[in-house]
Every structure is written in structure tokens, then in C-alpha cells.
């Protein structure tokens, strides 16, 4: 089995799923089942006291691992507060740090993310920080105790694919202590396959599924693309060449 490990936990699916923006919780459940994902992200929000809404947890398959995000946090302190609230809910100690202070591009603040990672890792959390793909920041995150590093492929929810490709390749080449998981911007199965072919350990996808015509079917398409990309990475892709290289023998022609 081609497994990988985050924070001491062995995972066989390299497809991490975000649970936002689905039409219904029933649809979300179908998406999760069809994706084969073992880890899903959730957010924490104030409850609406006026209407008693369905609890999302009751729609998640058993044994799914919850990765609480700190969305809404604008600095390290707010991220730490959200992470602690998430852990107090009693569903594990995995946290996706997301510190965002910009409403137009939703870009993560690497400096605050490093601070939050250091505090939470010291408190025993399994910390997966969402970050701008910068090598020095990634090294600082690993040093701060991150269990994985999650660079953005492109802007959150944009479905633009791997706009940050070169910088993510640098992280994959240089960071060997923890898995590199491409998060944000992956819009199609081909983007996910590309990330896996590059050597990413896993991908995290949400909007591409939630905004698909048929989300459960798209979940299956992504699962296959991720598996294919991973297999290609393990197989080792051939070199590219600026000139043609004949695939058939250049001898024994019938002419001449």
C-alpha cells in the first residue's frame, strides 16, 4: 500500500476534502463517500440561536478524521483561540491553520501562521498550516512543528489550478520532513493529477466539487485523477524534449 503519515496517523487516501458550500448535507455525505477521503475540513462558527440547524457531524461517515480550520482568524491569537475551541468539541486535535487578513484575495498571512503553528504544536495539536508557497516560510513552519505544509495552488475558491506551480515544486524538492499538500485553487481533476505528478503528498479540494454540476460524480473523477497522478509520480515521468523523438524504429523502412 502506498500510504503516507501525518502526525503519526497513517492515511491511504491522498484526497482531503473541504465541506463548505454544498447544496445540502446529504449531498456532502455522498461526496465524501464517493471520494474515499479520510480527512475532511470543517469550520467553527457562532450558532444561530433562532433556528435549530442540523449538526454537520451527524452527516459525516464514521471514522472520518476532522480537520478543524481556523477560518475567520485574522491573526495568530484568533487562530489559536479557534483551534482550542475546536479541540474542546472532542473530535480530535487536528487543525488547519488559516490566517487571512485580506478579503479580496484571501491570501494567508505566513508570519502569523508561523506564530500560531508554534503555539499550537507546543500544545500537542497536529498542525496543518495553509500558506503562501514560500520556501523560507515553509522551513519556519516545519521548525515550528507543522505536521504538513499546505501551499495554495491559486486563490481560494478560484478553480484556477496550479498558478503557483514553480514555487510549490521548490517546496516539494526542499521540504522532506513533512508532507506537502496542495490546498486551494484546484479546479479540475487534471489540476489535481498535475499536483500529484509533481510529487505532492496529497491535495485538498472543496470549491471544485461544491460548484460542479454533479458533485458526487466529480468526487469520483478527482479520486481517480489523484490516484493516477500519484501512480505517475511513483513510476517517474519521462524527460521532455524540444525536438521530436521517433517512437517507431528508424530502420527497416520500405522506401529507398
Amino acid at each position: 500500500m502506498d500510504e503516507f503519515i501525518i502526525g503519526g496517523r497513517t492515511l491511504s487516501s491522498r484526497f482531503l476534502l473541504g465541506t463548505g458550500k454544498f447544496k445540502s448535507k446529504q449531498e456532502l455525505r455522498e461526496v465524501i463517500c464517493r471520494s474515499g477521503a479520510e480527512v475532511v475540513t470543517v469550520a467553527l462558527r457562532r450558532i444561530d440561536l433562532e433556528k435549530n440547524e442540523d449538526n454537520i457531524l451527524s452527516y459525516l461517515p464514521e471514522n472520518i478524521l476532522l480537520l478543524t480550520n481556523t477560518s475567520g482568524a485574522r491573526n495568530a491569537d484568533e487562530a489559536v483561540r479557534l483551534a482550542r475551541l475546536g479541540r474542546a468539541a472532542g473530535h480530535g486535535n487536528w487543525v488547519k491553520i488559516e490566517v487571512i487578513n485580506d478579503s479580496k484575495y484571501l491570501l494567508p498571512d505566513n508570519a502569523e501562521t508561523i506564530k500560531a503553528t508554534e503555539i499550537l504544536a507546543a500544545e500537542g495539536f497536529v498542525v496543518l498550516p495553509y500558506m503562501n508557497p514560500d520556501l523560507y516560510a515553509a522551513r519556519a513552519l516545519v521548525k515550528a512543528g507543522a505536521a504538513a505544509v499546505m501551499p495554495l495552488g491559486s486563490l481560494i475558491g478560484s478553480n484556477q489550478g496550479l498558478r503557483m506551480k514553480t514555487l510549490i515544486e521548490v517546496l516539494i524538492a526542499e521540504i522532506s520532513d513533512v508532507p506537502i499538500i496542495v490546498d486551494a485553487g484546484i479546479g479540475r481533476p487534471s489540476h489535481a493529477a498535475e499536483a500529484m505528478e509533481m510529487g505532492a503528498a496529497a491535495v485538498l479540494v472543496n470549491t471544485a466539487l461544491a460548484t460542479a454540476g454533479d458533485p458526487p460524480r466529480m468526487a469520483e473523477a478527482f479520486a481517480k485523477a489523484i490516484a493516477a497522478g500519484r501512480l505517475a509520480w511513483l513510476a517517474g515521468t519521462g524527460e521532455t524534449s524540444p525536438l521530436a523523438r521517433a517512437s517507431s524504429p528508424l530502420t527497416g523502412f520500405l522506401h529507398g
Binding site: 463548505g20 470543517v42 462558527r45 450558532i47 468539541a89
Partner: peptide, 10 residues
């Protein structure tokens, strides 16, 4: 008093 719960999120 803050009362929070899990919701869908990415």
C-alpha cells in the same frame, strides 16, 4: 458567552 459549532468549511 460564545456558543459555537462545526459548519461546512474548506
Amino acid at each position: 458567552v460564545e456558543i459555537v459549532s462545526f459548519v461546512g468549511g474548506g
